[in-house]
């Protein structure tokens, strides 16, 4: 295997281009889908990065389902026509403010909390948080007790209620285990962006930004500093990785 050497000039180029990228916040597709540096395959993830998402509910189109379709296609999440038991890694929610009658919509998925209740309650430790902040289910040791589903304040998790065949090769999923949004960890580890964010940009809504919350020059950090971002159920103080604007 070839040696991985960190190329310093490449790093500096990226820092400069990050500011340029932030200014291109309306430009679709290519630039925004590549905000992450590809991590070498043999390098472990560290706490130096924390992956997060920022979703602007004001830009989220009410009838649009592109993020949901993209996620489920990317990860091989198939529907069986049984909405109550079918897995959903991400869903669109349409809301009306009771005081003002204002209607908004937003996508809801695993919030990748810093102090995730699902991680606390898992008896085997299958539900865990990676060093870079992504909350995952280690399906090798998941016993399917569904306690994490009870504990999740966002109803982010799904239980696989039926036998799964023809899995997508980078997205193993099987009967009897619990699953949820992985922030497309298989893409992120290779420098890509989650499928939902990419689809939203392709549809030119630009409601979703993905990036490193610990990098003050990333697009997401700059946007958060400029216009802020709220957590859903902020009173629980879970410090979610997914923040929302316009709610």
């Amino acid at each position: 295997m070839k040696e991985m050497t960190v190329n310093f000039s490449r790093r500096h180029f990226f820092e400069k281009s990050a500011t340029a990228v932030a200014g291109l916040s309306i430009a679709p597709g290519v630039f925004l889908s590549q905000v992450a540096q590809a991590k070498p395959a043999d390098q472990a993830v560290t706490i130096e990065k924390r992956w997060g998402m920022l979703i602007d509910a004001a830009k989220c189109a009410t009838g649009c389902n592109d993020c949901v379709t993209a996620c489920h296609e990317e990860n091989g999440v198939t529907s069986h026509g049984r909405p109550e038991t079918d897995a959903q890694w991400i869903r669109k929610v349409k809301l009306r403010d009771k005081a003002t009658n204002h209607v908004i919509s937003l996508p809801m998925m695993c919030q990748h909390c810093e102090t995730a209740p699902c991680v606390y309650v898992c008896p085997t430790g299958a539900s865990f948080k990676r060093a870079d902040g992504i909350v995952l289910v280690d399906k090798h040791i998941c016993i399917g007790c569904r306690y994490c589903m009870m504990a999740c304040p966002y109803k982010a998790r799904s239980f696989v209620h039926e036998t799964v065949t023809d899995q997508v090769e980078y997205s193993p999923r099987g009967k009897g285990t619990v699953e949820s949004c992985t922030l497309c960890v298989h893409r992120v580890d290779e420098g890509g962006t989650p499928a939902c964010v990419e689809a939203c940009n392709k549809a030119e809504h630009g409601a979703m930004i993905f990036g490193d919350l610990k990098d003050p020059n990333s697009a997401i950090s700059i946007e958060l500093e400029k216009h802020g971002g709220k957590q859903i159920r902020a009173d629980l103080k879970l410090n979610t990785g997914v923040r929302y604007q316009g709610i």
Partner: peptide, 29 residues
């Protein structure tokens, strides 16, 4: 029960995204 038992099942959306990513990373280099 969870893993794919044969290769090649990669959805189009992923293939396109990875191809675009590769082009970008090469361009950046």
């Amino acid at each position: 029960q969870c893993h794919a038992d044969r290769p090649g099942n990669i959805p189009e959306i992923h293939k396109k995204a990875m191809a675009a990513l590769e082009t970008n990373l090469k361009a950046e280099d």
